[in-house]
């Protein structure tokens, strides 16, 4: 099981600024280990952000994204005290869901 995400969501004027750090290997499938064997691909494929039942962001990722990725985005319609939920799914079917309260 992957480590929890670090999510910070803060009000920036009338928008919510969300900053997410995800703990993930993000193996491209192109690298070889010291024995010369290909390290199997293992990367996050989809990211979804949900706010009060509504999807506010979806992203499709691939092996070009760095290890331990950082994602920052804004959305409208959120208020301080409400919750933002982030969900990622990787190519091995692993999934992780974490959430954070929006601060002012």
């Amino acid at each position: 099981m992957a480590d929890p995400m670090r999510i910070r969501a803060t009000m920036q004027g009338d928008k919510v600024l969300v900053r997410v750090l995800m703990s993930h290997e993000m193996e491209t499938g192109q690298r070889k280990d010291s024995a010369g064997n290909i390290v199997p691909a293992h990367f996050i494929q989809s990211v979804t952000a949900v706010h009060s039942g509504k999807t506010v962001l979806t992203a499709e990722w691939g092996p070009a994204v760095s290890k331990n990725p950082f994602l920052q985005f804004q959305f409208a319609g959120g208020k301080s005290g409400e919750t933002v939920q982030i969900i990622w799914t990787d190519n091995k079917g692993d999934k992780r869901t974490d959430e954070a309260k929006i601060s002012s």
């Binding site: 480590d3 929890p4 670090r6 900053r19 703990s23 290890k67 331990n68 950082f70 920052q72």
Partner: peptide, 12 residues
Amino acid sequence: MDGNPADLWEAR
């Protein structure tokens, strides 16, 4: 500088 993954280690 922004979004330093060190945060993940700090939390752990």
